[in-house]
């Protein structure tokens, strides 16, 4: 087991965003987290990057307790996070954004940079342009490439398809599949449930800060309740 979340609770002041959730991710998997807006998906990812420490419960990564590790120590540990809305550094060039991804690496990383430019040729063309001047699709590719520059073993993706044209979404999902083939485990939060389930091995479904059920992606794809979630309706009857 690569990641093991046990009974994790996250609170924002008086509001409880996550009510003791538990889930696991195995090495080499693509796991997706589904749920309606406000179900707690983003909070779950933020918890897995140290942006919100759980008030109770525990998180283990590759056997080590990482419950109270600070956000800035996650990338060196092997967990990279592609945040919701991509969050490209707007006043840095594409190249500088990639360098930020390798911030904690002490060894030379220029081979990786060339590799990113091979995977994402458009980024090579835009190398000297500011992040703010990229299109949404280009920013998403840059956000993924930037996260990969840290050589993560677990990649967290928050809504990678948000606001992108269908053709670009196809490309992004193909890239995510390739990333897994190259040995990186992927945990992806998506609104686009159908697409996410075709990509993933397993899925968890969240509602109101709780994981309500989980199954293989195949089974979830044909599950009545998932169809309800996908349509944004309530699962509880």
């Amino acid at each position: 087991m690569m990641l093991d979340v046990q009974e994790a609770t996250v609170r924002y002041g008086a509001i409880t965003a996550l009510h003791g959730i538990s889930f696991q991710i195995n090495e080499g998997e693509i796991v997706t987290l589904l749920g309606a807006n406000g179900a707690g998906k983003t909070t779950t990812l933020r918890m897995l990057s140290g942006l919100h420490a759980p008030s109770s419960g525990a998180i283990f990564f590759e056997g080590a307790d990482i419950t109270n590790v600070k956000a800035h120590d996650f990338s060196a540990m092997g967990i990279s996070h592609v945040p919701e809305g991509r969050r490209i550094f707007p006043q840095m060039t594409v190249e500088e954004n990639l360098e930020m991804g390798a911030f904690k690496r002490s060894s030379a990383y220029h081979d990786d940079m060339s590799r990113m430019y091979e995977t994402f040729p458009i980024l090579k063309d835009r190398r000297k342009q500011l992040g703010a001047n990229l299109s949404g699709g280009e920013q998403q590719m840059l956000a993924i490439a930037r996260a990969l520059m840290a050589q993560p073993r677990l990649l967290l993706l928050d809504e990678p398809s948000m606001g992108l044209a269908p053709m670009i979404v196809e490309t992004i999902f193909r890239i995510i599949a390739d990333i897994r083939k190259q040995g990186t485990t992927v945990f992806v939060v998506e609104q686009n449930a159908a697409q996410a389930l075709r990509l993933a091995d397993r899925g968890y479904v969240m509602e109101n800060g709780r994981i309500v059920f989980s199954d293989t992606a195949q089974n979830l794809l044909h599950d009545e309740r998932v169809r309800a979630v996908y349509l944004g309706e309530s699962v509880e009857s």
């Binding site: 990057s49 140290g50 942006l51 600070k70 956000a71 800035h72 120590d73 996650f74 990338s75 060196a76 990279s80 996070h81 945040p83 969050r87 550094f89 707007p90 006043q91 840095m92 500088e96 360098e99 930020m100 991804g101 911030f103 904690k104 930037r146 840290a150």
Partner: peptide, 19 residues
């Protein structure tokens, strides 16, 4: 770079490993 990253987006800077 870390000063500029924090100025532009502190939270994302921390995800990159910037203290």
């Amino acid at each position: 770079r870390s000063i500029r990253a924090v100025a532009q987006d502190a939270e994302t800077a921390s995800l990159m490993g910037v203290n």
